[in-house]
């Protein structure tokens, strides 16, 4: 039973940044902009969070910096995709490459530690929150799995609730969905489609910012080159897996995080009947699942209709 809860614990830890990034992607893609740039947004945020948290000795300052960096990359993606009607796929690939190149160069120039940032002190990180009866919690696996996390994990839960309300029950959500489904109809209804799409980018950048900051401030404690390691793409996969719906995308993230959590536990251990499974196979599960899903073997994934198409006013 304890092992179940420790897997649950690990799942929640791994899922948090995925959930935040997937919801970030949801805003972008629902507004009609393909978001391959999730990876770059997160990586830039991780770097900024590491630098600022180190200099200011404050995780909150790090978080703010991470969000700002995420928004900056998002705005670049916006200027290219919305302002200049550029190819959104290419823009995403290019931004990811740029961030992947720029961050270690800056890290080396500023900290001389071979492309990484100095390790943060405890004071500059997010730690598990101190609840009353802390000892009881630490001692009990189920309680630890549910209540033993840092503040960002609970923030992410709140974000899920807020996002699903905003997307389905708010004025902005209606306009967001209209911009992604039929921007010409939105335009005819007097809505500034480009503005809605820019706002969606800003939100996407901010959420990716939290996700990237989480990686540094709650997990590694330092920026490491290419530390997102495909998490942005994984979040995108989860978003597609969830057919662009918030709760379903979150389930996708939890599923992917779960495979990651059991992979660590299964490492080297022999399973009955199958024998030992190479790590590589378990690592590949989310990617294979996404391919299988996209191939329509698990129900059709219907993307927002106008996704990827630059909005050019017709008459």
């Amino acid at each position: 039973m304890d092992s179940f809860f420790s897997v649950l614990d690990a799942t929640i830890r791994v899922a948090t940044p995925l959930v935040l990034a997937a919801l970030a992607g949801l805003f972008s893609e629902r507004s009609g902009i393909v978001d391959l740039a999730l990876e770059g947004k997160m990586l830039a945020a991780a770097f900024a969070a590491a630098c600022v948290a180190y200099m200011m000795q404050s995780p909150w300052a790090g978080l703010a910096a991470g969000m700002a960096a995420g928004v900056m990359v998002a705005l670049l993606h916006g200027i290219v995709s919305i302002g200049y009607n550029g190819n959104q796929l290419i823009s995403g690939v290019a931004l990811n490459m740029m961030v992947s190149g720029l961050t270690p160069v800056l890290a080396l120039a500023w900290f001389q530690q071979g492309g990484r940032t100095p390790t943060l002190d405890d004071a500059a990180r997010f730690r598990s929150i101190e609840l009353p009866f802390a000892d009881t919690i630490a001692a009990s696996a189920p309680l630890k799995a549910l209540f033993g996390h840092n503040i960002l994990v609970y923030l992410a839960v709140l974000v899920i609730v807020v996002v699903s309300w905003v997307v389905y029950k708010s004025r902005f959500g209606l306009r967001l969905r209209a911009a992604g489904e039929n921007p010409h109809a939105a335009d005819a209804a007097g809505i500034n489609v480009k503005l809605v799409r820019y706002l969606a980018q800003v939100i996407s950048g901010a959420l990716c910012g939290v996700a990237g900051a989480y990686l540094v401030l709650a997990q590694t404690g330092a920026f490491i080159q290419d530390m997102t390691a495909g998490k942005g793409y994984l979040a995108l996969a989860a978003l597609i897996f969830g057919k662009w719906r918030p709760w379903a995308a979150v389930s996708g993230c939890l599923l992917f995080a779960f495979t990651d959590a059991i992979q660590i536990r299964l490492q080297g251990s022999e399973l009955p009947l199958i024998g030992s499974i190479p790590d590589a196979f378990i690592q590949a599960i989310p990617y294979v699942l996404t391919v299988v899903l996209l191939a329509g073997f698990m129900g059709r994934a219907v993307a927002p209709k106008a996704i990827g198409v630059p909005f050019v006013k017709s008459r």
């Binding site: 290219v80 200049y84 290419i90 690939v93 290019a94 740029m98 992947s100």
Partner: peptide, 11 residues
């Protein structure tokens, strides 16, 4: 490389 992709491909 990323910059060149951005400027020559998307912009």
């Amino acid at each position: 490389q990323g910059l060149i992709i951005l400027f020559c491909g998307a912009l």
